[in-house]
Write a protein that binds this DNA or RNA. Structure first.
Length: 230
DNA sequence: CAAGCGATTGGCT
DNA sequence: GCCAATCGCTTGT
């Protein structure tokens, strides 16, 4: 075993790996680990292998939140790479992005799917929590939510950006967090030494049709087709 | 200050 | 395959 167990702390994730072109950063992030330390809500460590991402690149990108220039919401996209950009979509779902590119250039990689490596049950518990929390669509009772999620296979617990965020307990308070700080409760780590790279295909991004031709069609969604079936 | 709308999901027509 | 749920951000009056 190379990592994941107590012992030697893993080497810090190098910020330079995310400071170059965002498509390079996106490829670099495939296979990386997303780690959430135990907290007072979920008592086990959660670790996942990133298998699907999308790139949002610059103010020119008509599908990016940076398309209208700097605003209160997107301001961290203009900062240094490796910072978490978290926002609420459709009034109910959170999405987690990793800021990329040099400071001043607004770009980010949306983390869309991970496969659990450790703490799958904790991810399931976090999703149950989310389903029964206040202001939620269904306001399911805990029993119903637990029963529904019990039927979700481990491999699908964090497939889809909102499911990933829920499984890792990501909320708006995580916006601006440094994901490359080894002391951060939510962070990135490199894949274990010797692990095969993620096999991926590139295709157009999801849900950005309104960006128009020339932007909506760009193949800036990278995914492992085995792990993410659609 | 009002209003339209979304980098989604799950359940039902 | 379609559609409702739900609210902060953005823009226009």
């Amino acid at each position: 075993m190379t990592s994941g167990r107590p012992g030697r702390p893993p080497p810090p994730y190098p910020r330079a790996a995310l400071a170059g072109p965002t498509l390079d950063a996106a490829r670099e992030l495939l296979g990386a680990r997303l780690v959430r330390d135990p907290d007072d809500r979920v008592a086990a460590r959660r670790v996942g292998r990133i298998v699907e991402v999308e790139a949002y690149i610059g103010e020119e990108d008509r599908a990016s939140h940076a398309r209208m220039g700097p605003t209160p919401r997107n301001r961290v996209m203009y900062g240094p790479p490796g910072i978490a950009y978290v926002y609420l979509v459709y009034g109910m779902h959170h999405c987690l992005n990793v800021v990329t590119g040099p400071p001043g250039f607004p770009a980010a990689v949306l983390l869309r799917s991970i496969v659990p490596v450790e703490g799958a049950e904790a991810m399931r518990a976090a999703r149950v929590r989310r389903s029964v929390s206040d202001r939620r669509r269904d306001r399911e009772d805990p029993g119903a939510a637990a029963a529904r999620l019990a039927r979700v296979p481990d491999a699908l617990l964090a497939v889809g950006p909102a499911n990933l965020a829920a499984a890792f307990g990501v909320e708006r308070g995580d916006n601006g967090l440094d994901l490359l700080d080894p002391a951060s409760p939510l962070r990135l780590e490199r894949p274990p030494e010797g692990e095969s790279p993620v096999t991926f295909v590139a295709s157009p991004r999801i849900g950005v049709e309104r960006a128009g031709p020339g932007w909506a069609d760009r193949p800036w969604r990278l995914r492992d087709p085995e792990a993410v079936r659609r």
